[in-house]
Simulated assay, not measured.
Amino acid sequence: MKSVIFTEVVKQLSNLLKQLKPNDYSKSLDVLNGSSIGQHTRHIVEFYQCLLKGILGGIVDYDARERNLMLENDLNYTLSILKLIETQIENIKNLNEPLLLSVNYNSDSQHFIETNFIREMVYLVEHSIHHYALIRIGLQENFDKIDIPKNFGVAYSTVKHRQEMVVEI
């Protein structure tokens, strides 16, 4: 598997966000329970940052997100970080790089689970698409001028299933 599929998911978000006005990016939306497109984007971006940081030290900890408010409020800053993430993913030499995933569901115990870079990227693709679906709802309900790609926020398996259904008919 090539890293292209992983950067494609990041590019989908970048391309969509480029259509937004900076104020719209950080606007609180009722349909998202008061959160913004920026807040969902920050959440997505910080998961990628945790993985890319983890590859340096061998331990991925998604709970250790920075919760950087610039990512949810500054559209241009976020677009530059997304570009940096694309570049960093493209430069990963060993997609099977072994890692440990830090898991801590309560304050009493921390566990480390064996994983690798490509497995975590698969997780991040699914995680991103889930949040893209929420972003899509926010955009559709509040910003009718935004051109949302047909499959933005739709799982790859669902896209494939829909294509197969069309062929069978």
Rank of each mutant, 00 (worst) to 15 (best):
S3L: 02
V4P: 00
T7R: 14
V9H: 13
V10A: 12
K11V: 11
L17F: 14
K18N: 15
Q19S: 09
L20E: 01
S26Y: 00
S26Q: 13
L32A: 04
N33L: 10
S36P: 00
Q39A: 00
T41H: 01
T41G: 01
R42T: 00
F47M: 10
Y48A: 03
Q49P: 00
L52E: 01
K53P: 00
L56T: 09
G58S: 10
G58A: 11
A64Y: 09
A64P: 04
R65Q: 08
R65G: 04
E66F: 11
N68S: 11
L69E: 15
M70E: 14
E72P: 02
N73W: 02
D74R: 14
L75C: 06
L75Q: 03
N76R: 06
N76V: 07
Y77M: 08
T78G: 06
L79T: 07
I81Y: 09
E86K: 15
E86A: 04
Q88N: 08
I89R: 11
N94G: 04
N96H: 13
L99I: 13
L99T: 05
N104W: 04
N106T: 11
S107C: 11
S107I: 14
D108I: 09
D108Y: 12
E114D: 07
T115L: 13
T115N: 14
I118L: 07
I118M: 04
I118A: 10
R119P: 07
E120I: 07
Y123S: 06
L124V: 15
H130P: 03
H130R: 11
Y132L: 03
I135N: 06
L139H: 14
Q140T: 05
N142P: 15
D144W: 03
K145D: 11
I148K: 03
P149N: 11
N151L: 03
G153L: 08
G153T: 08
V154E: 03
T158A: 07
V159H: 02
R162V: 00
R162M: 05
M165Y: 07
V167S: 05
E168P: 01
E168H: 07
E168G: 02
